[in-house]
């Protein structure tokens, strides 16, 4: 017997856990890709140009994530569509 309130709390928790793990993976991807690209030889501080590179790299990485996500979801839906046509 689930009360509506308990159900909503479970749903909220699951959503938060998912969105936290998604944010963590995104941050990891940005750090690895942009450190690699913008700081080839780490010096004693982040130079102005390295700093600017990191900010732009982050924006670009998020744009890339969105493009990849969009294409991937479109392709999955297409494959599911093809299978259903094939099953007729």
């Amino acid at each position: 017997m689930e009360s509506e309130g308990v159900k909503q709390a479970i749903i909220r928790q699951a959503r938060e856990a998912n969105s936290q793990s998604n944010a963590r993976l995104l941050i990891e991807g940005i750090n690895n890709s942009c450190f690699d690209k913008c700081v080839p030889k780490p010096g004693s501080s982040l130079s102005n140009s390295e700093n600017a590179c990191v900010v732009q790299c982050m924006e670009k990485y998020i744009a890339a994530w969105n493009e990849v996500n969009r294409t991937y979801i479109r392709r999955i839906q297409q494959e599911v569509g093809n299978q259903q046509i094939g099953n007729h």
Binding site: N31, C34, F35, V39, P42, L46, N51, V55, M58
Partner: peptide, 8 residues
């Protein structure tokens, strides 16, 4: 520098 990037 990795920590700088991470924090930024």
């Amino acid at each position: 520098r990795f920590m700088d990037v991470n924090i930024a």
